Simulated scan of single mutants.
Amino acid sequence: MEIGSKIYIAGHRGLVGSAITRVLEERGYQNLIYRTSSELDLRERDQVQRFFEENDIDYVFLAAAKVGGIVANNEYPADFIRDNLLIQTNVIDSAYRAGVKKLLFLGSTCIYPKFAPQPLKEEYLLTGELEPTNQPYAIAKIAGINMCQSYNRQYGTKFISVMPTNMYGPNDNFDLKTSHVLPALIRKFHEAKEAEALTVEVWGTGKPKREFLHSDDLAEACLFLMEHYEDSEIVNIGVGEDISIKDLAFLIKDVVGYEGDVVFNTSAPDGTPRKLVDVTKINGLGWKATIPLEQGIRAVYEAFQAEQVVRQ
């Protein structure tokens, strides 16, 4: 990408999109295009086609998606499969028709089979059953990856797909019903500290292990791959190490400064037992994550506290 390239970031207000936008701006890219959902509904085909027709876009980062944790996936399965299929279909097809030079599609490591060997290698995709609570979202994302690959094969496009592990960072979703585990725990422990609550409940046994990638690291990886990778095969993006939910809970408890007890609700679902990605491929290409987990969590909690002060 050249400094003057016209770059569209779909989902620029979200966790991933805002990080990509921030990194692009820091590197001096000035011809960035983005629209809010009220300005451009990516679920509406006509709107998306018109947008691409009216803007001479060179590159696309497709970070727009409907995402959430176990609670949201359980309660809104139709929303997850419908919205994600519509968003990615409209953007990918319109990008092809408008002659976009390159598109990067954000998948997710949660779409790998539930009991795939660890760490997760790229070739494990579609080799086993999916996590049931996550199936609608996973099927939609798998369709997006296959769509990019199919357009490359049939039309000669340069559409690449990446598989980021669990993410966290600035502009995260802290809603307890729809957020992922890390931001949800930050909010739970913060509110318990403020209320001087005696206990904090954590869903599940605490045994499942998860890998967490800071959104700034993900953004750097996405830019690196946009500039250096053109293969149709997916690429994992992660840090290469994980942590149990129990240890994560106690780490966040310490960062927040909560002094009560942690109670694990073992009747709640655990989800996938483990989800560590193999990062051999992207490390071999020349990229590695740089932000340690505790450092990243402290920065996110500071930003969360600042946001609470603003709202007050």
Rank of each mutant, 00 (worst) to 15 (best):
M1F: 11
I7W: 02
Y8A: 05
I20G: 04
R22V: 07
R22Q: 14
E26C: 09
G28C: 12
Y29T: 08
Y29H: 15
Y29N: 07
L32Q: 09
L32I: 14
T36E: 09
V48A: 06
D56E: 14
D56V: 01
I57V: 13
Y59K: 10
F61K: 01
A65V: 09
G68A: 06
I70E: 04
I70C: 05
N74Y: 09
E75M: 08
Y76V: 05
P77R: 07
F80E: 02
I81P: 04
N84C: 13
L85S: 09
L85W: 06
I87E: 03
Q88I: 07
D93W: 13
S94G: 10
R97E: 14
A98I: 04
G99S: 11
V100G: 10
L103K: 11
L104M: 14
L104R: 13
L104W: 04
T109V: 12
A116S: 14
P119E: 07
E123S: 15
L126T: 15
E129T: 10
P136Q: 03
Y137H: 15
A140P: 02
I142N: 02
I142L: 14
A143H: 11
G144T: 13
G144D: 14
C148H: 05
S150G: 06
N152A: 06
Q154D: 12
Q154C: 05
Q154S: 07
K158G: 06
S161V: 05
T165Q: 06
P170E: 10
N173K: 10
F174Q: 01
L176G: 01
K177E: 15
S179Q: 02
A184K: 05
R187P: 01
H190T: 04
H190F: 03
E191Q: 12
K193R: 14
E194D: 11
A195E: 05
E201L: 00
V202G: 02
W203M: 12
W203K: 09
K207P: 02
L213A: 04
L213E: 04
S215R: 01
D216T: 14
D216A: 12
A221N: 04
L223C: 11
L223I: 11
M226E: 04
E227P: 03
E227R: 07
E230F: 12
E233R: 13
E233Y: 12
I234H: 05
D242F: 03
D242L: 04
I245F: 01
D247V: 01
D247W: 01
L248D: 00
Y258D: 00
Y258S: 00
D261A: 02
A268S: 11
P269G: 05
D270G: 08
D270H: 12
G271Y: 00
T272E: 10
P273D: 09
P273N: 03
P273L: 06
R274Y: 08
V277Y: 00
V277A: 14
T280A: 12
I282F: 06
G284E: 06
G284D: 08
L285S: 07
W287Y: 11
K288N: 12
K288D: 11
A289Y: 07
T290W: 02
Q295L: 12
G296W: 02
R298I: 06
A303Q: 14
A303H: 10
F304L: 06
Q305C: 15
A306C: 08
E307D: 15
R311P: 02
Q312S: 15
